[in-house]
Design a binder for these strands. Sequence first.
DNA 1: ATGGTTGTTTAACAA
Length: 262
Amino acid sequence: MRLITWNINSVRLRAENVCRLLAEARPDILCLQETKTPNELFPRDPFHALGYEHIHMHGMKGYNGVAILAKHPFPSVATRAWCDRRDCRHAIAELPGGIELHNIYVPAGGDIPDPDENPKFAHKLRFLDELTEWFATHDRARSAIAVGDLNIAPLEHDVWSHKQLLKVVSHTPIEVEKLGAFQAAGGFVDAVRYFVPSDEKLYTWWSYRNRDWAASDRGRRLDHIWVTPALVDGLKSARVFREVRDWDKASDHVPVMIEFDL
DNA sequence: ATGGTTGTTTAACAA
């Protein structure tokens, strides 16, 4: 089984890029974040035509939005809302074989890394706290996958400069601590770092605000795939589609894939 | 230290 996660930054603007990825990588499951569209305007036809007939959409107008595309039907689906909001940031699907899949878009958190000064940062921290509390109540022995744009680069080599980003939202100690708590509460293993050593630089996002993203290479690893221990033995490979950052009308995030032998 | 870009929706706002 191949599973890909990708922050698409408007699925309507980039439906062609999604089709290209589906055709070239042929994942069984594709999780999208920042679809930025209500469900009724989601471009389902081009994806259906490629064999992805099952789409669990959870969208709203203009902002946020997550979706899970699959070749095979989902036995069940659900959504969650956090922080007393109606944001579309969390879609859940059961996969054939009883695997529980979570597609999550964590709030970016604004620019100032202080919850008292910046309500967006406070929202991000609370969102992580609520996920932690909720996942702590789940059975640790089950098969589960959590993916998405978690908007935090936890490791030193998940950013281009650990030192220069310590006070930049996405890599501050408080965020790293809360992401770690969420991961531990769910009993999750980082499936990508399972294959890529932690002393090796690895990024999934490069800002639009650089003249030449590849030359400056000031990236961050914001997009993640985690699995519970029951699935670790089935992990086969990991891949970050760095080249997709150079496609026409590229998203600022690139797809991340895990392959399983189940 | 600052500004740099993109998408949604059309003047800010979010990232």
